[in-house]
Write a protein that binds this DNA or RNA. Structure first.
Lengths: 244, 244
DNA sequence: CGAATCTTTGAATCCTCTCAAGTCTTGTGG
DNA sequence: CCACAAGACTTGAGAGGATTCAAAGATTCG
């Protein structure tokens, strides 16, 4: 299953039509796995599928919240812009993850971070009230939501512990290994490289520092450029640095 | 309401008897606010109240999970020990917060971090199954749990954004301001200082670096030592550094 | 092709770490 | 209650790492 759509030119946001939950192959990965979609077809009708290309915003910090987004494939960043203008990624959202979960609480009427695609990413856009209805109707759905909340918590802890602690070399090796795992999941044999600035926002350092360390990785053949954004890698070598 | 028990010598864990939820003055601050305690007295009977003195562990990373803990007052750290032996605090738990929330998911039978008192801290120890029963019986309780999950998420984001990003001076000023707010809540006019090593684990730097910057704060009168662990502070000065 | 954006590299500065020693505080047992 | 031991905190000096500012290459988009 290589991502055929990676080769297609991609810049914007594409409307991919009403979601077909009944025949959705990846539903088992997300919270809707707990829902009998045939039974609730009516309720699920407003769900729309979109494709967001690299760098497109799903929503911005502070925007009024109307929808949640489930990631079908690709990767999102949840990013907070700090007072001094720099950005900090608080967590990454992978397949099955939800962007905007904080808006499920009644008191939150707006998004707390910006959600932006870091790779080409397909999502299902689900109106807020559909989620609320499902929570009222399907008991198992609540369990799935709690599980999702815990996963988001772990995703943030991951950024803190693995990407924001220790020498930069180590942190970047860990990020590369995360990208390796991600590429396996997508059926690729090469890394889909993040932008330098995203890596900087993930580690809390400057983009120059990131660039320097990655240059070192390339010189020592830990990363080998295949094409723009595409890299082959030395997993063992990266692992060694990550665990050092 | 100054903490009278701060003056009493305190080293260990004290059993304070069965919790009296019915007359509990701080219940409105936590998830049990949604529960009619008179109606569910039977179910709540196993709840025990404890006092943990500074540095005592409620549980350790990997321990089999049997109970959750609600903080009545004081402060806990949730700490992860990394491969190289250093510790990283992933979040702090204040009044009304829950330690061990991750164990509410069926698949988690053990705690993911260690929970340790950083100040003298009173907690209610609640068996796991009591929580589960309440979730089944009281619909509003589930809402409160979700809210709590979101608060834990925000507590982790706070460590990442405010305590692990930017120059160390700035981060330490922010931690001091957090302690200022904490002291207000407890009705004190002085900071209850964290241990240097805890501050280091919160910021991801060495204890020597923390000590040096705090020494600078003391020299410039941003912090003024009153007694061991107790400091007067210059809130405006700290604010200025925190926002610089 | 040209403009805008993203990435790389250099050199000087600043910050943080390491290792080491010394001081202060706290807890324990005589 | 005091003395000693253990733990916590401070300080110094040198090395190593990250930042800043600036400029030059790449890449992408129109």
């Amino acid at each position: 299953m290589t991502n055929s759509f990676n080769s297609i030119k991609c810049k914007d946001i594409t409307w991919e039509g009403r979601a077909d939950c009944l025949h959705c192959l990846i539903r088992r990965h997300d919270v809707l796995a707990t829902v009998d979609v045939a039974q609730h077809e009516e309720l699920l009708r407003p769900i729309i599928q979109y494709k967001y290309c690299r760098k497109n915003n799903l929503y911005n910090q502070g925007d009024e919240a109307t929808d949640l987004f489930i990631v079908r494939n690709g990767m999102l960043k949840l990013e907070e812009t700090l007072k001094d203008g720099t950005a900090r990624i608080v967590r990454l959202i992978h397949r099955g993850g939800i962007a905007g979960i904080e808006t499920l609480l009644d008191q939150n009427q707006s998004y707390e971070q910006s959600a932006i695609a870091v790779h080409e990413t397909e999502v299902c856009k689900i109106p807020f009230r559909v989620f609320h209805n499902l929570m009222n109707i399907v008991p198992e759905f609540i369990d799935a939501i709690m599980k999702q909340w815990q996963q988001q918590l772990e995703a943030s802890e991951n950024v803190l512990i693995n990407f924001s602690t220790g020498p930069l070399k180590q942190r970047l090796a860990r990020i590369m290994l995360m990208l390796v795992e991600e590429s396996y999941k997508q059926g690729n044999t090469e890394i889909n490289m993040l932008q330098i600035e995203d890596i900087a926002a993930l580690t809390g350092v400057t983009k120059e520092s990131v660039s320097r360390v990655l240059a070192e990785f390339k010189r020592s053949q830990l990363l080998i450029k295949i094409s723009p954004h595409r890299f082959d890698f030395d997993k063992e070598g990266l692992r060694e640095i990550a665990d050092s």
